[in-house]
Nucleic acid binder design. Sequence first.
DNA 1: GAACACAATATTGTTGACATATTTGGCGCC
DNA 2: GGCGCCAAATATGTCAACAATATTGTGTTC
Lengths: 238, 238
Amino acid sequence: MSAKLLTLKNKLQKRGARSERSGKAVVTPEAILETLRRRIAGQEIPPGAKLREQDLAAEFGVPRTRIREVFGTLESRGLIERIPHRGAVVTRLDMELVFKLYDVREVLEGLCARLATENVPSESWQDLVDHYNAPMANFLKDGDFDAYVDGYDWLRQRTIAAAGNPIAAQMLDSIYERTSFVIRRIIILPGRAEAGLEQHRAVLAAMRRGDGAEAERLKRLNMRSAKEALNKFRNYVL
Amino acid sequence: MSAKLLTLKNKLQKRGARSERSGKAVVTPEAILETLRRRIAGQEIPPGAKLREQDLAAEFGVPRTRIREVFGTLESRGLIERIPHRGAVVTRLDMELVFKLYDVREVLEGLCARLATENVPSESWQDLVDHYNAPMANFLKDGDFDAYVDGYDWLRQRTIAAAGNPIAAQMLDSIYERTSFVIRRIIILPGRAEAGLEQHRAVLAAMRRGDGAEAERLKRLNMRSAKEALNKFRNYVL
DNA sequence: GAACACAATATTGTTGACATATTTGGCGCC
DNA sequence: GGCGCCAAATATGTCAACAATATTGTGTTC
């Protein structure tokens, strides 16, 4: 029996080896999904806008069925809403839902901060500590928000990667793609980036000294602070 | 090996059972999705088993395209894995992934406990407090695990409903449908249900007196305790 | 000129047929 | 008897035509 299994395994490996598919540039569903995700996240397609299957099928040069399939995924992630026989529209975010997304984000990012601290040697955070020391402050002073946001993304992605929890990572991803434009608007609120920077430093300090529980607590405080800023300026953000 | 046996079984079933479409009863994708979810969650379809589109299409009396659509959703929820040209198999859970699911579950249930406490009048928990006082203890004493599990589900669903956060609710749902069989096995571990009951009472007491922060803290402790039990008896659970 | 009914158009939903890849079964060979 | 190769069978992937429904446009009536 085991010999038989071995034979089968070899055969599979042999087959799988020659996977060179040439010619005919096919547009994969993943590529379409990614493109639409980016457009919706960047508000290139505004909330409430209708997505026509035919137009998208023509644009990507694929049959309508493929677009339909992608719509299914987009719907399950909450990025679009589908009404039977009436098509798909980009989900409209109201303030209430944004707060609920932030409540979930708070606990998930807190979790990731703790797990990250526990999983990797504390020295590995030194480069981020350094970056958040002088450079990030200078970005703010110079009004270079793009560089600041890059530094923010860097910290976030490193933390999630170090946490090593694909479940949490995927959930956070689905939150980011729904709120990325909100995040960008919060950062430019008066005084918010400065306060946030100070909080990030505190979180990083806790991570640097290997205190996972404190990193989680501080990260959650940071998220609550962001939520409060959002609430204070709600009329300017949404 | 077991997959092979299952294949044979399905083939036989296909021969024997006629489609038998009664009239024009249309089966919605949602119904199919729900059925498959339940089968996978209840391990009626065991992990690693292959799902054949044709068989399912014949069983539900729908075109294969519909099954395909449902597979897309199932895949995005992590319940199945699809390999190009080789079909869909039920995701196999290893211990590592279960722990990661529990880490996320811990923070999300903690969040819901807090939100629930903050959102509804504290008196509204009295019926659950009463139920967890004597009846639940009796269920355990009598070995009536079904009744105990029902009480457990009741508390959980009430908490999530009161929390009023559809994002967290959906995420927790996707965790439950992947770990429901683990939950059932943890409960019958020696001494686990008794310890759990005590912890649930503590959480409920905090909710009853309107202390959301404490409810969250206790709920998280409860989850960690469950995770420890799971770790201790890992060889018996998975 | 506004409101309604009804046809024309456009868009979404459904289906079976066809194309491609993989698994299975059989044959000759060592 | 085991191993590898080739063909048949089976399963999955793709597609474009057809059906059902919603939206738009038009003409008529009050």
